[in-house]
């Protein structure tokens, strides 16, 4: 795959094997990649809460034509650009990440709590999540 064109447009990217580390313009990068290269599927978005407090989002693109993977990785604090307008499947992933990591995706207005109850505080897969929450025993009368 010819990455010269890509590196011309997005100069501040780092290429590591089949993983591209980007710093900003996530939406533009994904749009550019899908327009110019045969990646036709967003397999999944993986979120990892790093020890430094930032959340790493790894966009896993896949091409069913030449069976190649491409990973695009970005570090975010609490908000990221939504790519629902490019890949509809991102709706599922972004919603999950919103629920479990508390990342707000700008441009996605359908975000809601998915696995956790609507009034739940905190996002369980973050490393700073307090686990021994008294609400876990589902006692509504518990005032403490």
């Amino acid at each position: 795959m010819d990455w010269n064109k890509f590196c011309e447009v997005f100069a501040d990217c780092e290429l590591l094997g089949n993983k591209i580390l980007i710093k900003s313009r996530l939406h533009d990068v994904i749009e550019f990649v899908t327009d110019n290269y045969p990646y036709d599927m967003l397999k999944e978005i993986i979120a990892i809460h790093n020890q430094d407090g930032l959340v790493e989002l790894v966009y896993h693109l896949y091409s069913t034509i030449d069976e190649e993977n491409l990973l695009i990785s970005i570090l975010v604090k609490d908000r990221a650009e939504s790519i629902v307008d490019i890949f509809e499947s991102a709706q599922a992933d972004e919603n999950e990440i919103y629920d479990l990591f508390g990342i707000k995706f700008i441009g996605n207005d359908k975000l809601k709590r998915l696995y956790m109850p609507e009034n739940w505080e905190g996002h369980p897969l973050r490393k700073d999540y307090v686990q021994d929450d008294t609400r876990l025993c589902w006692n509504d009368d518990n005032d403490s």
Partner: peptide, 9 residues
């Protein structure tokens, strides 16, 4: 196209 866009496999 829809299937691929929705990541159906």
């Amino acid at each position: 196209e829809t299937a691929l866009n929705y990541a159906i496999t």
